[in-house]
Amino acid sequence: MATGGRRGAAAAPLLVAVAALLLGAAGHLYPGEVCPGMDIRNNLTRLHELENCSVIEGHLQILLMFKTRPEDFRDLSFPKLIMITDYLLLFRVYGLESLKDLFPNLTVIRGSRLFFNYALVIFEMVHLKELGLYNLMNITRGSVRIEKNNELCYLATIDWSRILDSVEDNYIVLNKDDNEECGDICPGTAKGKTNCPATVINGQFVERCWTHSHCQKVCPTICKSHGCTAEGLCCHSECLGNCSQPDDPTKCVACRNFYLDGRCVETCPPPYYHFQDWRCVNFSFCQDLHHKCKNSRRQGCHQYVIHNNKCIPECPSGYTMNSSNLLCTPCLGPCPKVCHLLEGEKTIDSVTSAQELRGCTVINGSLIINIRGGNNLAAELEANLGLIEEISGYLKIRRSYALVSLSFFRKLRLIRGETLEIGNYSFYALDNQNLRQLWDWSKHNLTITQGKLFFHYNPKLCLSEIHKMEEVSGTKGRQERNDIALKTNGDQASCENELLKFSYIRTSFDKI
């Protein structure tokens, strides 16, 4: 039985969820670079991206490699990797027998973001014989899940209580170790020597080791999670996991709180800001991140802002960003909400898709409305799209047979046209069989910064309504002859009103 693990408890099935942008060198404390989270699957090609990484700022997932063999891993080693800020997950990587050479110096898994409450997941690794993470000293947050690894031993010899604050939620089941077939031998045991430290858990006094050649490092209890030197002297209180010299914040392997210019500090002093819960960055760093993602459509890219001495992905609820200094300031009234469309555009074809934009005031991208039916549609669209004030790209209304009016965009005031449909149009209306009105132009103002209007096959939309939009939106004169079809717009509506004058002759039985 794995020490510190839980057996036999019912657990939810383990679901495996399925960018080499360097964020800056980590400095003297770390020998390499800070790398983003990685999802490495199918083959070993991307694994080489770990070569210079000291910190993975995010998670590391290595999974679904069915053609790899043990010899493929023999020359692979990433000794610079010290810390993973989120979680480490391995799933069905064939041929991998140990992690001792792959990650010989991995010391800390912070667990800032977890995989279903777990910071370390080893699942269905069919050839893994031992973990071998002999320098792993601290899992700051989260638990361990090690399950269905039929060859995995050296679990009962690990004292997880020396690595985690609590072992109650560890789930370590259905491994070879369960069948008591392992016969784990710690260093020196074969020669009758006791080389590794022994600890007591559940009444068992057991030597602690990761492999037959690597003991588990056990520091004096007084050192807590700070770690200790090879001689057993406690590291500085700002260290986490390990250090090369005692009581020196510049000799830590990793930091308990924050890293700044080669030393570990309790908090980031001005003019620095907390970033990702582990390091200090200056304003320029946060500003660069903001600008890199301002026009990016890459998933996970955030326009970072500053709030409460932190550089964070977005302002919290009730705050909006001051564009001059990136500071989050309290909103006066309802907060603006910028919604970034991942692929640059979004099609609204149902109430469900409209709900995804609920509360958005600025759309960074283009909207395509293609709704053919739905219950209580006008009210639903207004509830979900009615706060949109600005669209950076274009607005396209296409084959939306259920629409009679666009009044559900009740606050839309600006279409920038930074991206144009077919390279020309910022407003595009095609084949809307029941569209009769755009907006009530006596109450609604709309500016279209650039781009043209396109109207074709809107049989109940009168040309007068379209011409009014040209005047109000500032697009009059931009359109070419064929942009607004004269014969297919309003051709099934009563669009022309003329005053009919009647004269009559009164007659009676005795007068003409």
Rank of each mutant, 00 (worst) to 15 (best):
C243N: 00
D72R: 02
K224S: 09
L81N: 00
F103Q: 00
G37A: 15
K294M: 07
E151F: 04
H28W: 09
K217G: 09
T329P: 02
D169C: 05
Y273M: 15
V121K: 00
R279S: 05
L76Q: 09
S284K: 03
S296Y: 14
P330R: 10
V218P: 09
K217R: 11
P249F: 02
L89R: 02
I185N: 13
Q61M: 04
Y319W: 15
R256Y: 08
A190T: 11
E180S: 12
N242H: 10
D86H: 15
R256L: 07
Y171M: 14
C228E: 03
V55Q: 07
Y94I: 10
E71Q: 04
G183W: 05
Q299E: 12
T229S: 10
N295S: 10
C234S: 04
T267A: 14
C234K: 03
L131K: 00
D288G: 10
L164T: 09
R162I: 06
F103W: 04
E124W: 02
L76A: 14
I109L: 07
Y171S: 07
Q204P: 14
D169N: 13
L114N: 04
T85D: 01
A119M: 00
Y171R: 01
T68D: 10
P79I: 03
D184T: 04
C255R: 00
D165E: 14
G132Y: 01
S77Y: 14
C331K: 07
T329F: 10
D247M: 03
D178E: 13
L60T: 01
K251P: 00
V200C: 13
I139A: 02
G58H: 00
G37I: 03
I56K: 00
R263P: 02
K251W: 02
V55D: 00
S244Q: 08
D261Y: 15
L174A: 13
Y118P: 00
A156L: 04
C335T: 07
R113A: 03
H214C: 15
F103R: 01
E207P: 15
N135Q: 10
Q276D: 15
C209L: 02
H214N: 14
L63E: 04
L326Y: 11
R298I: 11
F258S: 06
I40L: 07
D169R: 12
C311S: 03
R145L: 11
I306D: 04
D101N: 06
V173P: 10
P334K: 15
N195S: 09
W160T: 01
L152F: 01
Y118R: 02
E51D: 00
E147P: 01
N242L: 11
N52G: 10
T229F: 13
K217P: 14
N170T: 07
K251A: 00
N105M: 04
Y134K: 00
E207L: 11
N43V: 07
G262A: 04
Y134F: 13
S323P: 14
E207Q: 11
S324N: 09
D247I: 02
L240D: 08
D178V: 12
A198Y: 07
G142Q: 01
K80R: 10
Y171W: 11
G58I: 00
D178L: 13
K129H: 12
G262M: 07
F66Y: 13
M38D: 03
H214A: 14
H59E: 04
N257S: 08
H274A: 10
G132E: 01
I62S: 00
S323I: 06
C196N: 03
N43R: 07
N295E: 07
H302V: 06
P70S: 04
N117R: 06
G95P: 00
S225N: 15
Q204N: 14
H291V: 14
T107R: 02
I201H: 15
L327R: 13
E238W: 05
I82G: 04
R41P: 15
I312L: 12
N117D: 02
L136S: 01
L44A: 12
N135E: 05
C53Q: 00
S213R: 07
G188N: 04
P104L: 01
G183M: 06
D248C: 02
T68F: 07
Q245S: 08
V108L: 09
Q204D: 14
N135I: 00
E147H: 07
M83V: 05
Q245H: 13
I62W: 02
P197T: 11
C315S: 07
L64K: 05
C243I: 01
G300S: 09
F283H: 07
V265C: 03
C280A: 00
C255P: 00
R297V: 08
L63N: 01
H48V: 11
G227L: 04
E147G: 09
F275C: 02
N325E: 11
P70V: 15
I306L: 04
A156D: 01
P313A: 06
H28M: 06
K217E: 14
T267F: 15
L50E: 00
G232F: 03
E130C: 02
V173T: 04
L44V: 12
A119K: 01
N179S: 07
P271V: 05
N242P: 10
L136C: 04
H226L: 11
I62K: 00
V305Q: 03
L90Y: 01
D159Q: 13
I222M: 04
C331W: 15
D72V: 07
E57H: 14
S324W: 14
